[in-house]
């Protein structure tokens, strides 16, 4: 199987969706990323990334129930698919392989 390709930001967004599990929608994902990474993220960036991930089949989405806030507009909730999970696993595995291939002295220097 072709290896999944995930951009760095895509990976972050996908992970965040996975963390938020049932409560992942545009705003919560944006705020979660801001909180967890401490970097300012544009909503539009998050939105397009979510769309792209959905297109790649890593996320599926469904509209939530009507809300009282936000002018009565519904939320689109995102859930990670098995393909998404596999992609995250793969990315993680690659990272780990790379880390483990790191020579011990370099690791020491970095750790220091």
């Amino acid at each position: 199987m072709r290896r999944a390709f995930l951009g760095e930001f895509e990976e972050v967004v996908l992970l965040t969706v996975a963390i938020l599990s049932d409560a992942a929608y545009g705003v919560s994902v944006t705020q979660e990323i801001e909180q967890k990474t401490g970097r300012a993220v544009g909503f539009s960036t998050v939105h397009t990334t979510l769309q792209r991930l959905a297109e790649k089949g890593y996320l599926i989405s469904a509209m939530g129930g009507a809300t009282a806030e936000r002018g009565g507009r519904r939320k689109r909730f995102f859930t990670i698919t098995s393909a998404g999970r596999r992609a995250l696993q793969e990315v993680k595995q690659v990272r780990e392989e790379l880390w483990s291939a790191l020579p011990p002295q370099t690791l020491q220097l970095m750790g220091g």
Binding site: M63, G71, R74
Partner: peptide
């Protein structure tokens, strides 16, 4: 296609 949730999300934000 995404108008509703985008408008809602932005309002909330």
């Amino acid at each position: 296609d995404t108008q509703e949730e985008v408008q809602g999300d932005l309002l909330e934000l």
